[in-house]
Amino acid sequence: MDSTKPLEHDDTIIKLEHISKTFIVEDGEARVIEQIDLEIRENEFLVIFGAGQCGKTTLLKILSGLESLTEGKVYIDGKAKSRFDPRVGMVYQTTALFPWLTVMGNVEFGPKTRGMGKRERQKKAQYYIDLVGLTGYERHFPSMLSGGMCQRVGIARAYCNDPEIILMDEPFGHLDAQTRYMMEEEVEKIWDREKRTVVFVTNNIEEALYLADRIIILTECPSTVLKEYQIDFPRPRSLVSPEFLALREEISALVELREGVVV
């Protein structure tokens, strides 16, 4: 129990302490994440915003256990996090569905591996399939679905495993604008109904502002926290309200300025 740490906020669910990640590449080392300190609060919608290739995916992979840490520590509920913690689920940047399983098979994968009975897990999977609006597609294979539908399956699969924290890695990066808006609304709705902590990674300011309770802005690679914004606009948000546009201007300016300095 020596890994227990006093919590700063009593609603902190994940705490990152001086996290760093260095990849060993052919010609030496590549520092991708530099000393990130972060607290993620229960049931919040946290958006991590950063430019392309700045290490967003790497950060999420560290949280999910797919990538190891070079330095620092991650705590969940005050205890050091184990490698693949069942309390963490993830939605991926690319369509990472199992192509040989149907929509139902994909969604029930988590409960099935944990040994849940067939009846029970299928009922549960059905609930989440309905929730993401894929009722009627249970028997379809991923190769028969569009990109947006595949991401819906990915979201349902993550939720169906009952994690407390859901990591979403630019889930809509590959979708067309129209589908993207729709999916953003959908994700907000699901978050509202299912009240879990969501850590959402994006490189789209509008998306970030539309969804976030809090935005963490990362610097270029090696990335560290540049600035943090608490967003208190009422939901559902309007993309054209003056405050919204003002904040958007401010963040763009900040990011562009940063990039200017770097170049």
């Binding site: 060993i24 995916t57 992979k61 797919l66 990538e67 190891s68 690319t94 990472a96 192509p99």
Partner: peptide
């Protein structure tokens, strides 16, 4: 082709490269 592209996009699993 699918298989190859998957593994190219795909994250390499944590490997202690040393």
């Amino acid at each position: 082709m699918m298989a190859v592209s998957d593994s190219v996009i795909g994250s390499r699993l944590p490997s202690s490269q040393g």
